[in-house]
């Protein structure tokens, strides 16, 4: 039930049946209480081809950030496998993992919290160079200048501190840092959600330019489906720990199959009053259930207007519906 790569490209990242469960204290004070688990990511599989961008969308708490962090092995997985460039990374010992992690980098959501306020920008960008012993002295300095210029900053910025920069500039610093170790795969976790709209476009355009220039592969995690569709080749939609549908972004918009995808698409406002007047919304009732005790069968069935008895009995698998579109639904 894995998700095929876009185009004929070679697969760079293959995620197989990934699970990440977090323990939580059980309610009450009983010592006999059973340990409960937040099933943040529950059996997720996908592939990303070299040079491709896979978008991962979903609402808060659906597990998209956990997928990103577990794929980078910042979290140890509960079960499953991630094959990066031919190596199964969860089986690697620490020293070899360090070599691989150089190739897998991350950009974080909050440009204020993800930079050390006491380090200069030069040292922040230089840290991956030091850790991986890529350069020293003059070569290190030149590499830092080069990286800053790559992301549209200049060399004078190297001696300044993060608080002297705006949100958009800080996100550029974070990007320069992620590029420092010469990665092939970057996990972008909501890299633009904290930025103003005019600045978002600057950062997104830069991510696209860098991908073209350096052949980077992205996992782009965000809740803004319009932006994800814009930047990605394929889009995977997550709901409560599972991928419910994956397809080419334009295909997904034109022919959504899963009822959750349909509802999600219809909920997103379009900046055009003429279009908005004509649109009919599918308003989902209620809230996302708790990932501690997710509904049996299909996780979405409690809010699904098409739910049938079978949906509560058996979990639907991601099935290929042609043209690379995969859907996990019993009904549609």
């Amino acid at each position: 039930m894995s998700v095929g790569g876009g185009g004929n490209g070679e697969i760079l990242v293959r995620v197989e049946n990934l699970k990440k469960w977090f323990p939580v204290a059980a309610a009450g004070l009983s010592f006999a209480a059973k340990r409960e688990w937040v099933q943040a990511v529950d059996d997720v599989s996908f592939e990303i081809a070299k040079g491709e961008t896979l978008g991962l969308v979903g609402e808060s708490g659906c597990g998209k950030t956990t997928v990103g962090r577990t794929v980078a092995r910042l979290y140890e997985p509960t079960a499953g496998k991630v094959v990066f460039d031919g190596q199964s990374i969860y089986e690697l010992p620490a020293e070899e993992m360090r070599q691989v992690r150089r190739k897998i980098q991350m950009i974080f959501q909050d440009p204020y919290a993800s930079l050390n306020p006491r380090m200069t920008v030069g040292d922040i960008v230089g840290e991956p160079i030091d850790i991986n012993r890529l350069a020293t002295g003059e070569a290190r300095k030149n590499r830092i200048f080069e990286l800053l210029e790559t992301v549209g900053l200049n060399r004078e910025h190297a001696s300044r501190f993060p608080h002297e920069f705006s949100g958009g500039q800080r996100q550029r610093i974070g990007l320069a840092r992620s590029l420092a170790a010469d990665p092939s795969f970057i996990i972008c976790d909501e890299p633009i959600s904290a930025l103003d709209v005019s600045i978002q476009a600057q950062v997104v355009n830069m991510l696209q330019d860098l991908q073209e220039k350096m052949g980077l592969t992205y996992l782009f995690i965000a809740h803004d489906l319009a932006m994800v569709k814009h930047i990605s080749n394929r889009v995977a939609v997550m709901y409560l720990g599972k991928i419910v549908e994956v397809a080419d972004g334009y295909e997904l918009y034109a022919h959504p199959v899963h009822p959750y995808t349909t509802a999600l698409l219809s909920a997103i406002p379009i900046p055009d009053p003429g279009v908005e007047e004509e649109r009919r919304r599918i308003i989902l009732e209620g809230d996302v259930p708790s990932p501690i005790n997710p509904p049996s069968g299909c996780h979405f069935r409690t809010r699904c207007r098409l739910a049938q008895p079978v949906c509560s009995e058996k979990e639907p698998e991601l099935v290929d519906r042609g043209a690379g579109q995969k859907v996990a639904c019993w009904v549609t």
Binding site: Q202, A226, Y250, I270
Partner: peptide, 25 residues
């Protein structure tokens, strides 16, 4: 104008490069 062009529209039929507003407020 810039505000409208710097956000992608969900119903866009094809990829069009976003037009950012350069600089800072």
């Amino acid at each position: 104008w810039g505000l409208l062009k710097s956000v992608p529209r969900l119903d866009a039929a094809e990829k069009r490069r976003l037009v950012p507003i350069y600089g800072q407020p």
